[in-house]
Amino acid sequence: MASTSSYSSSPCAACKFLRRKCMPDCIFAPYFPPEEPQKFANVHKIFGASNVSKLLNEVPPHQREDAVNSLAYEAEARIKDPVYGCVGAISVLQRQVMRLQKELDATNADLFRYTCNEMPTTQPAGAGIRRINEAAAGASSYPQSSVYYYNPSPWNNDLCGDGYQRGGDNNM
């Protein structure tokens, strides 16, 4: 459980906020300790004390702390973004992941093109794994200590960056 406050000496954050006496069987006390008044203030502002009380009474005791943490997270997100709440934050993060994945794919494609242009023509065609030198361009050998491997993204089979899909499993 969250907190073990003494109900007679210090009311929980909910009862203090609502200006009522905190009883020993207070449904809010274990989840809204007196040290965290803003947590209950946010939840109350978004969901209302009555609704939170009803929800906590319907949820099994072993899941109440998770429910309160979810309510507190959503309430804080709704205060920051009243329209979208935590869905807005998730959407921003998903767009960021997609942008970074595209950047990674472009970098891998550049790396692959660089590897194809720098490979000696006598090198036998490997099983899709290419070695490149970490040192400056123009080095004539590929030391084993500085080997990188190109592993294309499973989301992008455009290995040469020219818009055509080659090889790989296209069923992803």
Rank of each mutant, 00 (worst) to 15 (best):
A72F: 00
A72P: 00
Y73K: 12
Y73I: 04
Y73A: 15
E74D: 15
E74C: 06
E74P: 01
E74W: 04
A75C: 06
E76G: 10
E76V: 06
A77I: 01
A77R: 07
A77M: 13
A77C: 15
R78F: 04
I79D: 00
D81K: 03
D81E: 11
P82C: 08
P82Y: 04
Y84G: 08
Y84N: 15
G85K: 01
G85F: 00
V87M: 11
G88S: 14
G88L: 11
G88Y: 06
G88H: 09
A89L: 05
S91M: 09
S91E: 11
S91F: 08
S91I: 03
V92A: 13
V92M: 07
L93T: 07
L93P: 00
Q94S: 07
Q94K: 08
Q94M: 08
R95M: 13
R95W: 07
R95G: 12
R95H: 13
Q96K: 10
Q96R: 07
Q96T: 07
V97Y: 06
V97S: 02
V97F: 09
V97R: 08
M98N: 07
M98G: 03
M98V: 08
M98W: 04
M98P: 01
R99V: 10
R99N: 12
L100C: 04
L100F: 09
L100W: 04
Q101D: 13
Q101K: 09
Q101P: 02
K102N: 14
K102P: 01
